[in-house]
Design a protein around this nucleic acid. Structure first.
Lengths: 189, 189
DNA sequence: CGATTTTCTTAACCTATGTTATTTTTTCTG
DNA sequence: CAGAAAAAATAACATAGGTTAAGAAAATCG
């Protein structure tokens, strides 16, 4: 069933008894979304951490000129959310939407807090995830300063090998922080 | 004594008994460093997470042309380390050095792992720190793409209000990702 | 399948930021 | 305190990447 991918992911880091798995799964909601459907808008409070069972989501900022800046893609097996809003339960600045039809598992902030209390091992699991994600964003923030657009394109291909051929150039441009016109020029030069 | 600042920081997130405080402090080492002294070089394995009791540290990358890109400043009350190397215990790419004379508390990776086992509450504490740091680097990686140098300068001033007047323009330039020449021009325009 | 929308390409011109070099000012160190 | 070293200022010129606009190709949808 749809929880298997997530349980397998968790099992890489912590060992859960059958009862604990049950308890954890009871806190999850299944959600199906269609391509282009939004899960979060700027100004919303993000009440759910989302795990992608199939399909692909993305989170992005919108600037004053309507340009999108993609913070993260979340293909199958990835977690996504507006971490700022999830932590503080204040309105966030991110949009999250589906790039393809997708199946998700959601856990609410409320249930997450219960989980931390009832099965403290989950503090360990989510600490490891947060640490890895931190490393990845630390790297990206430096890359965005010191690498040229062409080099950032190379890093994108390394980071999301499964997406390189699937995503439109427009999406990739919005991730590496250049205009679609410039990316097109760059790829043909 | 020098552990008070760290214990106060921890107390904001988790409650420790006297015995637990003792046990935790027993895992710490005190270290004094002089201005310009390095604590980590590229290629080193980072074996200690470092807490700044007084003074200011920084972590940075060096590119092929000898340019420094500052990942983080760590004034009093901040943790610093090469998270990638600390997690994986593989050689990292960061340099860490002291911008001023500084007093530090170090906890080794080995002791940290013991701590997680013996006082699981520390999983919670470091999860919260990792999450907050993650939010901060998520924001910065987007800022580095979508903001102009002048706007990034503004964000730097917000993020490190105590450092704005202390740091040389060269350090600030290496944080916001411009040349010192350009920062100088920008500040006088 | 055809119509509409979206994406991609190309090209001419523009701007923020980089480069190199020189001088001035500030900070460090013996 | 003096001399050396580092940082900051200034300026002329260079370039990566942005802007605007238009047409071609591809994807979407009724």
């Amino acid at each position: 069933m749809s929880h298997d991918l997530l349980l397998a992911n968790i099992a890489k880091h912590i060992q859960l008894g059958e009862d604990e798995k049950q308890q954890f799964c009871a806190y999850l909601q299944v959600k199906k979304v269609k391509k282009k459907q939004h899960l979060l808008l700027e100004g919303d409070v993000n009440r759910f951490a989302m795990f992608v069972v199939s399909g692909c989501l993305r989170s992005y900022h919108l600037d004053a000129n309507g340009f999108q800046y993609i913070q993260q893609f979340a293909p199958e097996g990835w977690w996504i959310g507006d971490m700022y809003s999830l932590i503080t339960q204040e309105p966030g600045h991110l949009y999250i939407d589906a790039l393809t039809d997708a199946d998700l598992l959601l856990i609410s902030k409320v249930n997450l807090e219960k989980l931390y209390k009832e099965i403290p091992k989950f503090n360990y699991y989510f600490r490891i995830l947060a640490e890895r994600s931190l490393v990845s964003f630390q790297e990206r923030s430096m890359e965005n300063l010191r690498l040229s657009a062409k080099e950032r394109y190379g890093k994108f291909c390394l980071r999301y090998p499964t997406l390189t051929n699937i995503l439109s150039q427009k999406q990739i441009a919005a991730y590496i922080g250049v205009t679609p016109e410039f990316l097109s020029k760059m790829l043909h030069a």
